[in-house]
């Protein structure tokens, strides 16, 4: 009897320890980046200046602008298609093998490596449609990458609306479309928005798809049109850390850039969590 309890104690202790390891990894990553990056991030010029002296001084302003623009383009484009598509999957898609096929497709779309999206974007937007390396090509590539995530979130949120809410609306004489637009969507919206916010984090931090669709190595000016190249924070971090001519001097800038990315992701996660909890309480879902 005693040995059983001893086994349990050891096993639980090990599990607890391993969990601590995971937490410690995250804490280390965050603290390490904050410790080394805070100096850069606290300086005003880091935010407002262009990179100078082959990226060993100055700031990351064009990269911030580039990332903001890319995020804006891609999320707008993705939402425009993905939210209706998610509603379609949940409400209109015909049942049977076709639906199963579509489900498997969307699920697998989400599992395609981001570099493959980059290849696709290059073949279609950069070369095929002739956008060249541009904000538009990169934004659309990123949009396609997050499309399945938003589709699935929307579909799940719409599907989880209780049946009796729909029944109530239909029974009053609402059409199916009125039911969807006035009852189902408003209730599903907070969850959809949460999904979108998390997608913003993914888009803003993703590097592989923009490597050869938009990213400019060094472009100390802001883009003027959608067809211009642009810098972006994650790509800038990559360049600063692997191909800086003077790695020691660019290191503080790299840490600063990493810290901005971390702050962005952390902030978006907090916002998403807040919305989720707020509406969970409000709707008692």
């Amino acid at each position: 009897m005693k040995s059983h309890h001893l086994n349990q104690r050891i096993a639980f202790g090990v599990m607890k320890g391993l969990t601590l390891v995971v937490v410690a990894i995250l804490a280390f990553v965050i603290l390490y980046v904050v410790y080394h990056g805070i100096g850069s991030v606290l300086s005003w010029t880091f935010w407002t200046d262009v990179p100078r002296e082959s990226m060993t001084s100055g700031g990351v302003f064009p990269a911030i602008v580039g990332t903001l623009l890319l995020t804006l383009i891609s999320i707008t484009a993705a939402c425009l298609v993905a939210i209706p598509a998610g509603i379609f999957m949940a409400e209109y898609a015909p049942r049977g093998w076709l639906k199963t096929g579509i489900d498997i497709m969307t699920n697998n779309l989400a599992g395609i490596p981001s570099i493959v999206f980059g290849l696709f974007g290059m073949a279609v937007f950069v070369v095929g449609l002739g956008f060249g390396d541009s904000l538009l090509a990169g934004g659309l590539t990123l949009a396609i990458m997050v499309l399945p995530v938003i589709i699935r979130t929307t579909e799940q949120a719409v599907r989880d609306i209780p049946r009796d809410l729909r029944a109530a609306s239909i029974a009053i004489g609402a059409t199916r479309f009125q039911t969807i637009s006035r009852v189902v969507l408003p209730v599903a919206l907070p969850r959809i928005i949460t999904g979108i916010i998390l997608s913003i984090g993914r888009v803003a931090g993703e590097t592989a798809p923009i490597l050869f669709t938009v990213a400019a190595l060094y472009l100390p000016q802001l883009p003027h049109s959608l067809l211009d190249q642009a810098m972006a924070l994650p790509y800038h971090l990559y360049i600063l850390s692997v191909s800086s001519p003077e790695p020691d001097k660019s290191l503080p800038l790299a840490f600063g850039t990493a810290l901005i990315l971390l702050i962005l992701v952390l902030g978006l996660n907090l916002v998403a969590n807040f919305i989720r909890n707020y509406y969970k309480k409000k709707f008692k879902l």
Binding site: P84, E91, G101, L109
Partner: peptide, 23 residues
């Protein structure tokens, strides 16, 4: 809007095929 929703749905369901095609 219903037509739009359906169009988006069908478009995204063939997206994987389009990606595969180009790739």
């Amino acid at each position: 809007w219903q037509a739009f929703i359906k169009a988006c749905g069908y478009a995204s369901s063939v997206l994987v095929l389009i990606i595969v095609l180009f790739l």
